[in-house]
Design a protein around this nucleic acid. Structure first.
Length: 481
DNA sequence: TTGGGG
């Protein structure tokens, strides 16, 4: 049991380049530890103890007792003035300046952290339960997140793989599952328009959650927009999405914009952004084997993050997504008496008038349906996702009839044939085996919903609050068969 | 002393 604080670093110079020397630094408080501004800076140690750990030499510095350090920039032509020292009474002579010059020159031709190490993975290679290092950009930091809440969102330009047991994960969340709890949706819906616009359009945004009190992590939180290297994170799945867990054994270090790790990430992303498959998730089938057909087949795909972050409230898109949940759960509830919906439909029709896109004018017809004798209308919510975001999209009225390739709205409680047909389609969308639908949840394991293309449009319910009342719905899409 | 890739 110790009350000391500790940090580790790997140091190298021209005499000991790879793998470098591991240094463990103990102090009595966080402020006494060296806080390296950027990997590649220079540190001078005094009175470290050399040890041998598992056959590998390592140094131990005890700053609260006898060791000391001086920390300064590793950049050529920067000041010789240290930006942090463990004690006030340090000396710095011409001899030291000469060594600093030598090291600064050497760094230019020997970039730091080139290999990345055996544990380094990209977000696209994340596996549940794995321990890994990650080079990534910090897109957002919750400076005042409570303990164990999402602390930051990071990105490396790659797409996380679809989660295998999606239905199971969402079932476990059960009633607790809400749009605003969605780890992929939450960051987006809480962010200001400015931040949303600044997000890259592709690549998974990974939440990082601390497994230690946030208080311990807060002092070392990186600045927004910084590139960092995490050491020894672990990965778990929550509500069907990956999250990285920052453990007591995890470490974070700031990377300079010139480091090879960062250049590699940026280069890969640029390559991807300008490739033929720019709009496609890395994990969707190629060539596209889609269950659905859409209007506007010539329109390029947008990612769901582009949909969510778009600068206009009302807009139309074509997307390639997986349906991970359908509500209502019972197909017999897919249609409801229209009168329930009359008020909202009126509002939606109203908002459509402000949509400059011509093809949505038909929404006024929803209103005429309300007064039809049968008085039923489709009202379904699909949770759709791609590697960039998860959103709730409504499938309503004529768009639903079109989607299901027939089956006009009706009271489905007395219509076994239609219910059977719709159930088959719902199971197909979710990638579930229809024959086992009554079995226990083990039949849900290992399913990954098929990718479907769909047209999506955004609209709003309240003219006074267009952004907060923004919704999405599916249109122009058919699931044949 | 502590911890060090669980």
């Amino acid at each position: 049991m110790s009350v000391d604080v500790m940090c580790t670093m790997t140091i190298s110079d021209m005499s000991y380049d790879t793998p470098g020397l591991r240094v463990l630094i103990f102090g009595d408080k966080l402020d006494s530890l060296p806080r390296v501004k950027v990997v590649g800076d220079i540190i001078r140690f005094h009175r470290v103890t050399m040890q041998n750990f598992n056959g590998i030499p390592q140094a131990v510095a005890n700053v609260s007792k006898f060791s000391a350090y001086v920390l300064l920039s590793g950049k050529k032509d920067d000041s010789y003035e240290p930006y942090q020292t463990s004690s006030k009474g340090f000396t710095f002579e011409q001899h030291d300046r000469n060594i600093i010059d030598l090291i600064r020159d050497w760094i230019v031709t020997h970039p730091i952290g080139t290999g990345g190490g055996e544990y380094l993975v990209q977000i696209r290679r994340l596996k549940e339960g794995a321990f890994f290092d990650l080079c990534c950009k910090v897109l957002y930091v919750h400076n005042h997140a409570p303990d164990y809440a999402i602390l930051m969102y990071v990105w490396d330009g790659t797409d996380a793989q679809p989660v295998d047991d999606m239905a199971l994960h969402l079932l476990e969340a059960d009633n607790a599952y809400r749009e605003d709890m969605d780890p992929k949706h939450l960051p987006l819906s809480r962010l200001s328009q400015d931040v949303l616009r600044s997000l890259p359009s592709k690549g998974t945004i990974l939440p990082v959650v601390p497994d230690i009190p946030s208080e311990e992590l807060r002092p070392q939180l990186p600045p927004l927009g910084a590139w960092v290297k995490f050491r020894n994170l672990t990965c778990r799945i929550r509500h069907g999405s990956y999250e990285a867990v920052f453990m007591r054994e995890s470490k974070i270090s700031l990377l300079g914009p010139d480091s090879k790790l960062v250049k590699d990430c940026e280069g890969n992303y640029q390559q991807r952004a300008f490739s033929e498959e720019a709009g496609l998730p890395e994990w969707s089938p190629k060539p596209l084997e889609c269950l659905t057909v859409t209007d506007y087949e010539h329109v390029p795909f947008s990612t769901l993050r582009e949909v969510f972050c778009h600068a206009q409230v009302t807009q139309k898109f074509r997307c390639l997504v997986q349906v991970v949940a359908i509500w209502p759960v019972k197909v017999t509830d897919f249609c409801a008496p229209s009168s329930f919906r009359q008020k909202q439909m009126t509002l939606e029709a109203h908002s459509m008038k402000d949509n400059t896109a011509g093809k949505v004018a038909g929404y006024g017809r929803d209103l005429s349906q309300i007064n039809k004798p049968n008085g039923y209308t489709y009202r379904i919510q699909l949770t759709v996702e791609d590697p960039t975001a998860r959103i709730q999209a409504y499938l309503c009225a004529e768009d639903a009839t079109r989607f299901f390739n027939g089956h006009p709205p009706a009271d489905l409680h007395n219509n076994g044939i239609v219910v059977d047909a719709l159930e088959r389609k719902a199971y197909k969308l979710l990638g579930l085996p229809f024959n086992n639908k009554a079995e226990n949840s083990s039949s849900l394991r290992k399913h990954s919903p098929p990718w479907i293309k769909c047209c999506l449009k955004s609209y709003y319910l309240d003219k006074e609050n267009p952004w907060s009342s923004r919704r999405f719905r599916i249109f122009g899409t058919t699931l044949p068969g």
